[in-house]
Simulated assay, not measured.
Amino acid sequence: MKVLIIKMGYSEALHPGSEFDETASLGEVLRTTVILHLFKNDQVTWLIDWNQSPIKNPRPLLENNPLIHRILPFNPISILQLQSEFFDVVINLERVPGICALAESINAESKYGFRFDKILGDVRPDFHYTLEPYMSIDTKREMKKPWQEILFNLLGKSWNKEEYSLGYQPGRLKTIYDIGFNYQVGTSWPLKAWSIKNFHQLENKLIQKDFHISWQQGMDNLQDYIDWIHSCKMIITNDSLGLHLAIALKKQIIALFGPSSPDEVYLYELGTKILPAGNFSCMPCWNQKCEKKKSCMEEITVDQVYKEVIRLLPDAQRDYQRNNNP
């Protein structure tokens, strides 16, 4: 069976109001790899935009993945090729009108995801199984389903805790840090960030317990970034690409959530999620700008995170000392 997956990270598939962004959301690409387990014996083609900077090029997430038969670049030559082929299944997870129009034009037995409405000239989330319920913020708050389950349901399947499938496998660095601070977030969602001030205060508390801390590295090259995450035993992270890479690499995780939905991210029992201590009826809002005087992420306290580190890594500092002393 021939399968085409269209997921470049141009749009947040389940975020109402998500706009086209030429800067790829790589977390969206990585967490979509979970559906590859449904096509282990098939020929899978993945369409991506690899005309990106080294840190935004999604190829390392997919390249050398045994579950992917070929990766095609999003360019006029590939478009002509795809329009001349036949596929058994086309899965389009981009909400961009032009890409939806491309998905409409490809010959296939079955199509899933977003389509192009030729009358309205706009995107519709109802190729085969409707995604319409997930376009409403109120409905999304009530459903509380992880992305993996939503994707499998989209394809008419049941999700049985299948995991991400990362192409690039790091090997140049061993685990040398107790904790990595994955503090940056993408420019599209600045409200997801926990403050640098809080990370510094947390560092001061942790180094008193002899924890070995590393701040986010490899931000000029995606492979270097993956290597850095691989070098850490635990990752403390905002809701960002680093969170999904930590999941794929099976790191211990403390994930900080505020304006985005913690229910959409499944941690596979690798750690814990921390939410603001206060009662915020607006969470999650998926807004890029906060309408409140104080954002929800400001209500996640340093003590909250510190207590979870001690609970999850009680012997980390001794492990580090043992591994680094002659």
Rank of each mutant, 00 (worst) to 15 (best):
E94M: 11
K174C: 08
D239S: 09
F87I: 05
S158H: 10
K118L: 09
Q304A: 05
A255M: 06
P66N: 13
S105H: 07
D138G: 03
W215M: 12
A103K: 03
T272N: 03
I77Q: 03
I106T: 02
P326Q: 14
K289S: 05
P133Q: 03
I196F: 05
E12K: 14
K111F: 12
S260D: 12
Q317P: 04
W50F: 10
G278H: 15
N325V: 10
A246C: 04
E149K: 14
L222R: 06
W286S: 08
T130D: 10
L72P: 01
L313N: 02
I71P: 01
H37F: 06
F114G: 03
Y306T: 02
L26M: 11
L267I: 14
L67G: 07
N204V: 07
H212I: 04
L62Y: 13
I150K: 12
N198W: 01
I137Y: 07
G98V: 04
G113M: 02
H69L: 05
R322C: 01
A24E: 02
I179R: 08
V305T: 12
K144D: 05
D303Q: 09
L30P: 07
L131N: 15
A13M: 00
L267T: 09
K294N: 09
S110H: 15
E132V: 00
G167Q: 11
S11H: 10
L14E: 06
F181Y: 15
I77P: 00
T130S: 15
K293E: 10
I6L: 08
G27Q: 12
Y177T: 02
D42M: 07
L30C: 05
E12P: 02
L72W: 02
H244D: 07
G180T: 00
K2C: 04
L4P: 03
I176Q: 12
G156P: 06
Y129T: 09
D227H: 15
S11R: 14
Y266A: 03
N324D: 03
F127H: 05
H37R: 11
K289F: 09
S261Q: 09
I253G: 06
Q201M: 07
D227W: 14
E291I: 02
T187E: 11
C285R: 08
K273S: 03
R322N: 09
K40R: 15
A101S: 11
L245A: 07
R31L: 04
Y164N: 11
I207W: 01
I235R: 13
N160P: 02
K40D: 02
C296I: 01
D42H: 15
I253D: 01
P16H: 05
V302T: 07
D178Y: 11
G156Q: 03
P170V: 12
L275K: 12
R141L: 06
M297R: 15
E269P: 00
P262N: 05
H200I: 09
T33N: 15
R172M: 12
F211M: 05
N107A: 08
G27N: 13
M297Y: 07
G218F: 14
I79P: 02
F280V: 06
L191K: 13
Q148P: 11
T32Q: 07
L151G: 05
K2L: 12
V305W: 07
D21G: 06
E104N: 15
P133L: 00
G171K: 15
Q321N: 04
F181D: 13
T301N: 06
A103E: 04
D126K: 08
K289N: 06
I6Y: 13
K157R: 15
K205H: 14
A316V: 08
A316I: 10
I68W: 11
L173E: 02
K289W: 06
